[in-house]
Simulated scan of single mutants.
Amino acid sequence: MPLKLAVLISGGGSTMINLQRNIQAGSLDASIPLVVASRPCTGVEKAESAGLTAVTLSPKSFASTDEYSQKLFSAVRDVEADLVILAGFLSKIIIPEDFANRVMNIHPSLLPAFCGKGMYGHRVHEAVITRGCKISGCTVHFCDNEYDHGPIILQQTVRVDATDNADSLAERVQSAECEAYPKAIQLYAENRLLVKEGRVHIVNES
């Protein structure tokens, strides 16, 4: 059976659409029975245009992060999702025990560099350029209940040119993300990711 993904978004939904395209192309053995947005955003419209079920669940409607997380994961369980995909999702959630190593995120840097609370999007790329890094990239990792933490699955590098600004570097990193995220999810679908002592081992890696 295809892997069931619950995709969480907060913005334009480009990562979600990239995953759906990979599914339609046959390179990702999965389906997306649920998209959850943390706020009204264009990603919801894109999801619905792609024929996906999308709901908006705002943390502002709940008394605490814990209550919000319980409601969100209840919706995820209702569709029997195998894996939760954070796709530009900017709201804090508490991952329950039954979803340990079942929530993935992609971060636009080579973790553990340039991460933590408030480090997302162009803020990351600006920090990379300011620091004078010669390479950057993206990291796919399993999530725990710390920001940008949890076992690393895949990393992909990109060059940083002397003439780069945040926009040009973001474009290059996003291209890497479009390759790395579906690849990591497919490895999960093939049961080839083994987490041992906080490290991810890829089974039968060539």
Rank of each mutant, 00 (worst) to 15 (best):
R192M: 02
Q20S: 12
L8F: 07
L72P: 02
V103M: 07
C143D: 12
A50N: 13
V200Q: 06
V55N: 10
D98M: 04
L86E: 06
A81M: 05
K134Y: 00
G137E: 04
E146S: 13
S27E: 14
K60G: 09
L90E: 12
I93V: 13
P182Y: 04
L111K: 07
G118V: 08
Q156I: 01
Q186F: 01
S64A: 09
Y188G: 04
P59K: 04
G198M: 11
K4R: 15
G198I: 06
D78L: 08
K71L: 00
E190A: 13
Y147W: 13
M119T: 04
Q24K: 14
M104N: 03
A184D: 03
A113Y: 11
C138Y: 02
A113C: 03
N165C: 12
I129H: 06
V79C: 12
G121S: 13
Y68G: 02
N18D: 14
S14V: 04
C143S: 15
F114R: 02
L90S: 00
V195Q: 10
E190V: 02
S49V: 05
A54M: 02
V55P: 03
E67C: 06
P33H: 07
G118I: 07
E197L: 07
A6K: 00
S38P: 02
I185A: 08
G150H: 03
N145A: 09
C133M: 10
F73P: 02
Q156E: 15
N101Q: 13
